[in-house]
Design a protein around this nucleic acid. Structure first.
Lengths: 247, 247
DNA sequence: CGACCCCTTGAGATACCTCAAACTAAGTGG
DNA sequence: CCACTTAGTTTGAGGTATCTCAAGGGGTCG
């Protein structure tokens, strides 16, 4: 909506600028608006946006926010891929959700004051940072946002439940297969981009080595065929079969 | 609000009447209203309730609704304990959440048309069945319900995430310990009521036998002391230690 | 080129699963 | 009232999937 200053944040890694103000967040003409939080807004509603909405680009590895941080904004994903991480008491990490274009993250700040996960960019992403006051104001003024909000919450719950039943249940083989399937179904062809083995492990609740072994095994058996680094063409049929294997 | 006809539903088991209309759902004077969905409603809001709200009592084992059922109502739990079950493609079941007094279930029907879980009563429960039209109407008319709804959604997401990180991560020992802790913290003393071993297994993503073994082991080692059938006094200190054990 | 990071692979340990049997508690019916 | 069922829990023994620890290989970047 309104242009705003540059945002720089650095991640754990060395690389310096991983997040930067990117372009004008012009919600009305947004290319993915039908996907996004403001999908149903009408012309008149936009006048209620009284605070700037920043459009921010992040490089892989960048951190949008940390668990426990004071939360002042929700984010809409325009492009790229973001992981939500939760840290266990013993320091291990578990990835609880992935966010794709159209998804919203940080909704918890509409109810509480802090973020409840750490949000890390997996693949270079473009996001819109919406001050929570904007959402709060809109959501009381117009039932249209209201209903979108409910859909977002619902979506989060559904994804969380699926994550548990599909990616955290059954053998490691089956879990990896299901992860691949869930990745593949987004893509047009059977191409499927994967993540670091460590991330795969953290998503499935298995060790890095096990994740690596399963993927290596799939490649050897021809279920996966290399395309580029970490991109494979997958035999959907076979993956379906494997994902249904007992235990 | 308004008294309504008797409701009878039977479960898989033999017992006949497991659910029955129970009493007058008089929301204004509800004993647990400060906990419930209508917590923030003001006097004027109640006039917007145009459909009857039934108060229904269920015996253990009763089913509130099945996954895929047409959904026309959300439920508030007044007392007792309810599990949300999701069935896996291979027929196995996984328990994804537990609902206690004050919790709301079936929120998904405010967004979609069907229930997404099977809701089964674990301990005899009293619920209020609120037609979704009532919630939908109130939620556009008053920001007070609106905000409660958001809290409910948020609560569901948080519980789902905790379920994943605490009850589906780490060794079976640690998982059982965490389950016991989560049960104990509700109780005043260190008493803690457990579930069938099968349910414990379905909550933690382990087999019935493993669940049984862990609990039996805790009893032998004195971490748990028998009180009555399936009720134990637990050594919180020890459980904390075990729940943090690596691997 | 060397340093570093990540992926892969190996070998041994072990936690968990599977199958099966014994045990318990609570009905059910003679 | 006592045998007899029935359902759930416990326990055992053996197999196996996954973890752990450790080393080797292939990129990338300075």
């Amino acid at each position: 909506m309104i242009i705003r200053g540059v945002k720089i944040e650095d991640s754990v890694k060395k690389t310096r600028i991983e997040a930067a103000w990117s372009g004008q967040a012009e919600c009305r003409g947004c290319g993915i608006r039908d996907l996004a939080l403001f999908a149903d807004l009408k012309e008149q509603d936009f006048s209620l946006i009284h605070l700037p909405i920043d459009e921010i680009a992040y490089e892989a590895g960048a951190v949008l926010y940390n668990s426990g941080d004071d939360g002042r904004a929700v984010y809409t994903v325009r492009s790229g891929l973001i992981k939500l991480v939760q840290y266990l008491p013993d320091g291990a990490q578990r990835i609880v959700r992935l966010l794709r274009p159209g998804d919203t993250l940080g909704l918890e700040v509409l109810v509480g004051d802090t973020y409840e996960h750490t949000a890390v960019v997996l693949r270079r992403a473009l996001t819109c940072r919406i001050p929570r006051e904007v959402v709060q104001r809109l959501s009381v003024e117009t039932p249209r946002l209201h209903s979108q909000l409910m859909k977002r919450w619902h979506q989060s719950v559904r994804q969380a439940d699926e994550w548990l039943t599909e990616l955290s249940t059954g053998s490691a083989r089956a879990r990896v297969a299901r992860l691949l399937l869930s990745q593949a179904e987004g893509a047009n062809d059977q191409a499927c981009e994967l993540f670091s083995r460590e991330d795969v492990g953290a998503m499935l609740g298995v060790t890095t080595e096990t994740a690596s072994r399963m993927i290596a095994e799939f490649r050897r058996s021809g279920v996966l065929t290399d395309l580029e680094a970490n991109r494979y063409r997958c035999n959907i049929e076979e993956l379906r079969r494997i994902s249904g294997e007992t235990a």
